[in-house]
């Protein structure tokens, strides 16, 4: 990967990776820090990362760096602990996308990541599996459960349709 290709990856993907991290973490500074971190890693490994694989590399590095940091902070929400919450009245927002993002933060980490990668970047199940280290069928299951959770969270969605 040349310097030019590296810089192009900054231009093309830095925002995408940042949005993914920010949507997941909801902490801007930490998301920025991780983006900075993974691009440092990319720069060091630029000789071994091909131009074609750089986006997957960035998202993979971003995902795992984020999970590592969350583990260290012991902020990972246990899947068993994350019950389905109904969308309460005070959460009602005219913007469905905002409600969905609120709901997203209630999702268990695995489901949250795959939904984000699927919706934000349009990654295939296989690609999401590569990034998150899950099998393709695990990705499918997590997307299925995530969607179901979102649908239940929305609850009185008919008023929004």
């Amino acid at each position: 990967m040349t310097v030019r290709e590296y810089n192009r990856s900054v231009e093309e993907y830095a925002d995408h990776v940042f949005r993914f991290l920010f949507a997941y973490l909801k902490r801007r500074e930490q998301a920025e820090d991780i983006v900075q971190d993974i691009y440092e890693k990319l720069w060091v490994k630029r000789e071994t990362v091909s131009c074609e694989k750089v986006k997957t590399y960035l998202f993979t590095a971003a995902y795992h760096t984020m999970i590592d940091r969350l583990r260290k902070e012991k902020r990972v929400i246990s899947m068993e602990d994350s019950g389905v919450a109904e969308h309460s009245e005070e959460m009602i927002s005219p913007d469905l996308n905002e409600i969905l993002h609120e709901a997203l933060n209630k999702l268990p980490p695995d489901q949250k990541a795959v939904i984000l990668l699927r919706d934000y970047e349009g990654y295939s199940y296989r690609e999401i599996g590569e990034i998150t280290g899950q099998s393709e069928s695990q990705v499918k299951v997590n997307i299925f459960r995530g969607r179901k959770f979102l649908k239940n969270y929305i609850g009185s969605i008919e008023v929004l349709i």
């Binding site: 310097v3 925002d15 990776v17 940042f18 920010f22 983006v35 691009y39 649908k151």
Partner: peptide, 22 residues
């Protein structure tokens, strides 16, 4: 409903891009 459950990315821009360029 399921047809509308897709998240759209925000307009956030990574502010430190200039620091990343080499």
């Amino acid at each position: 409903v399921y047809g509308r459950l897709f998240l759209k990315p925000g307009e956030e821009v990574f502010p430190g891009k200039d620091r990343l360029f080499r």
